[in-house]
Amino acid sequence: MLDNPIVWAFAIGGPLITFLMGGGAVATWWERRFAGKMQTRFGPNRVGPQGILQPVADAFKMMQKEDIVPRAADRTLFNLAPIFPPFLVIASAAVIPFAATVDATGKYDPTGAVAELDIGILWVLSMAGLMVFPIWVAGWSANNKYTLLSGMRMVAQGISYEIPMVLCALIPVIYAGSLSLSDIVAYQHEHGWIALSLSPSMFVGAAAMLLFFLTSLAEANRIPFDIPEAESELIAGVMVEYTGIKFGIFMLAEYLHTIVAAALTSALFLGGPSPLFGPAGPIAGLIWMLGKTLVLFVLIYWLRWSLYRFRSDQLMDLCWKVLVPMSLLLVMLAALMVAGGFA
């Protein structure tokens, strides 16, 4: 029954979408509580125990709000734009293996991805690349100078930071010799995590993970790279003219993007479901994968509430003068290490 790819996709995709959507909703509450604790204030604590039901209240509030489309906006594009961000983020999560099986011969097989594509990482990167479209279209179609500026910044940042991100994602590909995320995880189970393998190649792997993590923060528009929606300059970026649940969908997509970025970083560089110690079965794999994702996720919000944002030109300088040359150098070092037999 589960051998049929369509049945498998529904059996795995359903829980995955539920998990991402639910996780995204809980993340909105958790982030506000976390930020509150960091700034010695309360955060939402009225709806339900510790305020945990706040996302439900928020969702009802946003659905009840009037849906306003500005008269001078491009109506079709304005209404189409919010559909795509959550779709693209969830689609990119389809190839991430969330668990693993070990058969009788001790063969480790990462599984749990909705679709086992042989171009796995390319699929993720192409979905991430398409993400600039809905955001730019939202900024353009609203016909507002703040949204347009935000959309332009988004494009500049998105297509610049994509380059070091793709280059850093190449490094696990070079080590594992495969584009498939399952093969990359299987390689890491055998040879040690790419960012933590206690071999000469570990330094390249750790540096690549740092760069990949930073650039995926930029792709997800998180501080210190949230110039497209710098609220002190651009109010709420491309979302200025959106009301009610359309605004909510954009917000949810950002949280989903953060979760998927954390999951992807842990699968590429921290072994994904591969355990550091203990058993390697499917349940243990799921727990390790979720644990690693959660640690990176908390780190993202820790950074967000600790740092200032860069200025727009500093952001471009950082990308083109530091991150791009560094990632090119890392790709070269990784290729040399594989050729020299150090990895």
């Binding site: 594509l117 171009i119 192409s126 600039v132 297509i159």
Partner: peptide, 17 residues
Amino acid sequence: TFLGGIQIILYTGGVIT
């Protein structure tokens, strides 16, 4: 499939520019 993935990655940047 590889060509398909590369097609999307390369042309999105190109089209948006």
